[in-house]
Design a protein around this nucleic acid. Structure first.
Length: 939
RNA sequence: UGUCGCAUAGCUCAAUUAGCAGAGCACUUGCCUGAUAAGCGAGAGGUGGAGGUGCAAUUCCUUCUGUGGCAACCA
């Protein structure tokens, strides 16, 4: 019976994505046809929108999901901006120096870092980093990220190193760099100083000890009068780091605290603060005590005590940092091993003892503990204290403690000579610059502002080999350092030509020529420290943006887009160097995203087994589904991902795909040149869909401009599902399939479908470029020829919301009609549930509308009414009257609306499947309805 | 520990000034077999907990819990 020809959809566009194969093919075509370059060429004279890539670190060849998210976000922005008419290049970068790479490269070096030359070590580091680059690049490209992959920036490039040296030079010339002895965070495992940004707090179990410091005989006269001659007086300090005791030089009290002198049976007189006395007594259990008297901290200043086990005095000093929260109110002070101690020590000229070397091993200075790793020395020190009867109590104490963010081991403080960038010197400008930047989300402003406001100077020295050297020389005679604009420029020139290896390969003379020190001497040695790797990436605004000015127009650029941890990392290091040199921020807008967590909100970790690997997602679902995930989440907070979400995203992807397939299939015979129907001639529902389309374009444009992709995602999905698939597509099928091929009614639908398709495909392109381009390649030839001549959708312009499609009245009309349609659906469903009908064309509906205005609206559909409900007949009345007394299949009343369902009148037409009364009465063909007959004649 | 932010259906997101808490997906269920490893309909399902102020609270207040940032976590 179904021999009658219908206009069914025709397309080669496959329903199944087969992403694993198809996406790769598409990418190959992009590469082969150089689509990125063509897009850039197309916009070469347009306004620039530069997103500057924060360089991922090259310690691994495989990216994790957070990096994938970051790159995709960037790619969405760049692709969108390009479509919007900007010249928006993407130059990917890589961060290639630094400790983790050096440590990794050292893994298979027998004998460790000291067994090979720096140049040899650096060669291994370079090879390791560059091999990882290849892996990461492949990962990024598989995500569909486009960019100038042939010309990435790498911080180990000679030109980049030279630029970095020049930034250093400018900062030096401005007096923002100095060498100073300070207490810095030190990682004994990595054997280097660390900057604040590299410190991370984690729980740690420490010792908790109370140690007696006996007042020295020469100071007994300074003790309060209530102390009798025979009393041995001890200040009791509390510390969690026994190993710092060999470095002890002082005992700090709070000037305004009250200190109690407690006479004990076994320990002489003990001095602790009043506020901590009770806690102290109960913790240590020293037994009954007699309060001899009390004194303020400031009354005890400069009393000398005896170091518990070293022949040395330890001075009582006063410090505001002493608190009454834990311990004894008497603070063990080791200027060599604590920042506050260091400052206090400087104030009192205590000197500095730092008997721990760069590996955390005790030196000669530590006497009997020499040669031991600091942590290992805790126990012997405790034993020694016990032996000497200086230890009052010992237990453990859990607290958070600074750790190295690279190797995760506990840090120590070491007072050493380091190079610093004087943040104090340009803090005000930095804060001002922060306020000139747009931070998204806004909270980012406060986050970085507070950090910069309170941070101390930036320690840029690292005692390692894999990095850019600090370009300073020291006079062999007077030891004064040489750091002039000229000397630094000479180093920069040398690096530009030979790379930074030349620092190790060449002599000072070869590097800077014949230069004399102020003292007249002409022989120099080179600084051995290299720069903090954050200094490398912190200067990309110069090494990349400025150095590729023609392409990237120089700093500041429009956008930095990184994870929110970069407030203390790259955003800050970039800001500091840029402000120091130019007084400006290197970026106009900073956009941040949170961290990826699993579906239950937990951090991803190997041990929990909840890690989502990007390549596995791609293997199973394809890059576009992963990209769709990126677009679907509000990345301001933590970003969840997991099996459920991906499965759902795959469904949404499928919906997009099938929407496109319907559009493509039903446009197979449409020639825009000849078949298009003028807007005025479209039926109301057609016009309404165009209205919806134009609001979609308007809204998603706003969403893209605000980087709120999750709103775009919701809108896009809703449009495809609600406006198209279940509404317009469903209703339009009748016109598309059964009307004469060239009828105006059918061409009208196709006119709308074409507009929708060409708009949708371009809206999808930034987020799901493979899908969009796949659609593009499958466009019907006539459309390709006249409306879609670009070889890739990525070369098109983003759609513009068409004002001529906007019709608010029509929109309101259809809102009401859709409400009515929902009620009709309920009534039909009831009849269906009662097995009275199957498909809705087996029914006719009677709609009684009380409200005259609404009734008029429904009536306005006229002959389109049955089609609107996909029934065979539909009538509108003011109330259910006698005429409808037939066999009621169901009835639904709601909102002043009564819908009654009857069996459709007439007989089913064999072609269009609608029930018509004339079917069977037409002699020419009793199987068909009149319109089908006509349609057949016309075609 | 302090401080700031966040918390809406199983999931991803909405909800003007306090005014009946909405979508899509998933789920359940029915239909269709001319988008077919498709499509359509219907249904169920929710404001983290406990208080408070309002006629009325997702919205304002207090508190707790969870989560994230920052600061300190000390010696």
């Amino acid at each position: 019976m179904s021999d009658y020809s219908l206009n069914l959809p025709q397309t080669d566009f496959p329903m199944k994505a087969n992403s694993a194969v198809r996406e790769v093919e598409i990418q190959k075509r992009w590469d082969a046809e150089d689509v990125y370059a063509k897009a850039m060429k197309k916009r070469e004279s347009s306004e620039k929108f530069v997103l500057h890539d924060g360089p991922p670190y090259l310690s691994s060849s495989k990216i994790h999901i957070g990096t994938a998210l970051n790159k995709v976000l960037k790619d969405i922005v760049c692709k969108y901006k390009n479509q919007k008419g900007f010249y928006s290049p993407y130059v990917p970068g890589y961060d290639s120096h630094g400790l983790p790479i050096e440590n990794a490269a050292l893994k298979d070096v027998k004998g460790g870092r000291h067994s090979i030359t720096p140049v040899e070590l650096r060669k291994r580091c370079r090879e390791f980093a560059l091999s990882n680059l290849k892996g990461q690049e492949a990962n990024f490209r598989r995500l569909g990220v486009w960019g100038d992959w042939e010309h990435p920036y790498i911080t180990l490039d000679q030109k980049f190193e030279a630029a970095q040296i020049r930034v250093f030079g400018q900062m030096a010339t401005k007096g923002f760099l100095y060498k100073g002895l300070k207490s810095v965070s030190w990682c004994p495992t990595c054997e280097t100083a660390l900057a604040e940004a590299e410190v991370e707090y984690a729980d740690h179990k420490s010792h908790s000890i109370y140690v007696k410091f006996e007042v020295a005989p020469q100071s007994r006269a300074k003790l309060p009068k209530f102390i009798k001659d025979g009393d041995q007086v001890n200040f009791v300090i509390w510390t969690t780091t026994p190993w710092t005791l060999p470095a002890n030089l002082g005992v700090a009290l709070h000037p305004d605290f009250n200190y109690h002198f407690l006479k004990t049976k076994d320990h002489g007189v003990l001095v602790v603060s009043e506020g901590l006395k009770e806690a102290f007594l109960s913790t240590t259990g020293v037994g009954d005590v007699e309060l001899l008297g009390e004194a303020l901290g400031k009354e005890l200043e400069l009393i000398e005590t005896k170091h518990p086990f070293i022949d040395r005095t330890s001075l009582v000093v006063l410090g505001g940092h002493v608190t009454n929260e834990t311990g004894t109110g008497v603070v063990h002070t080791a200027p060599g091993h604590g920042p506050e101690d260091f400052e206090l020590g400087a104030k009192y000229k205590l000197g500095v003892v730092s008997p721990v070397d760069e590996r955390g091993i005790f030196t000669e200075e530590a006497g009997q503990f020499k040669g031991q790793f600091y942590e290992k020395a805790n126990q012997p020190i405790l034993d020694h204290l016990t032996e000497l009867n200086k230890l009052l109590h010992h237990s453990t104490y859990s607290h958070s403690y600074p750790h190295c963010w690279r190797c995760k081991k506990p840090l120590i403080f070491r007072a050493t000579e380091q190079w610093f960038a004087s943040v104090d010197g340009f803090r005000k400008d930095a804060l001002k610059a922060i306020d000139s930047v747009q931070w998204i989300p806004e909270s980012g402003r406060n986050r970085i502002f507070n950090m910069v406001e309170n941070r101390s100077d930036w320690c840029i020295s690292r005692q390692r080999a894999w990095g850019v050297p600090i370009p300073v020389f020291y006079c062999e005679k007077c030891n004064k350092h040489l750091m002039t604009a000229e000397s630094i420029e000479k180093v920069a020139t040398a690096f530009e030509k030979y790379g930074s290896d030349s620092w190790w390969e060449k002599s000072p003379e070869e590097l800077i020529g014949d230069v004399k020190c102020e003292c007249g001497h002409g022989e120099f040695r080179k600084e051995t420290d290299i720069m903090d790797v954050w200094f490398d990436s912190g200067t990309t605004w110069h090494g990349v943006l400025d150095m590729r000015k023609e392409q990237l127009k120089g700093a500041p650029c429009e956008l930095y887009l990184e994870g929110s941890d970069q407030h203390r990392g790259w955003f800050q290091s970039s800001l500091l160097t840029s402000v120091a040199v130019s007084g400006k921020a290197p970026y106009k807008t900073v956009l941040t995203h949170g961290f990826v967590v699993d579906e239950t909100g937990r951090k991803m970790s190997k041990s929990m087994g909840n890690v989502v690997e990007p390549d596995e997602v791609i293997k199973q679902y394809g890059a576009d589904v992963l990209r769709l995930w990126v677009a679907s989440v509000n990345y301001t907070d933590d970003i969840p991902i997991g099996k459920n979400m991906l499965a759902q995203l795959a469904e949404v992807y499928r919906k997009l795909r099938n929407t496109a397939r319907y559009l493509l299939g039903n446009l197979s015979d449409f020639n825009p040149k000849t078949d298009r129907v003028a807007y005025e001639k479209l039926s109301p529902i057609d016009q309404f869909v165009l209205h919806r389309l134009s609001s979609l374009v308007k809204e998603v444009t706003e969403d893209f401009d605000r980087f709120e992709f999750f709103k775009y995602y919701q809108l896009l999905q809703n449009f495809c599902v609600v406006d198209l698939s279940s509404f317009y597509f469903d209703i339009a099928k009748d016109r598309l399939y059964t009307e004469a091929k060239n009828s105006e009614s059918r061409r009208a639908v196709q006119t709308v479908l074409e507009e929708v398709l060409l708009t949708l495909v371009r809206i999808i392109a930034p987020v799901a470029p493979h899908l969009a381009d796949d659609i593009w390649q499958h466009l019907p030839e006539a459309i390709k020829k006249f409306e879609a001549t670009e070889e890739s959708v990525l070369l098109t312009d983003f759609p513009v919301a068409q004002a001529r499609f906007v019709d608010e009245n029509l929109s309101q009309l259809f809102e009401s009609l859709i409400d009515v349609r929902e009620t009709v659906n309920k009534a039909l469903e009831q009849a269906r549930a009662d097995k009275k009908i199957g498909k809705s064309t087996e029914a006719q509906v009677l709609i009684a509308v009380e409200n005259a205005e609404l009734r008029k609206k429904v009536e306005s559909l006229g002959a389109d009414l049955p089609g609107f409900f996909i029934t065979s007949q539909a009538t509108v009345q003011a109330e259910v009257n006698g005429k409808a007394a037939g066999n009621r299949l169901s009835e639904v009343k709601e909102n002043g609306l009564t819908v009654v369902v009857f069996n459709a009148e007439g007989t089913k037409c064999a072609r269009c499947w609608k029930f018509k009364t004339e079917v069977g009465t037409i002699k020419e063909n009793p199987e068909l309805c009149s319109s089908c007959l006509e349609a057949l004649k016309e075609s």
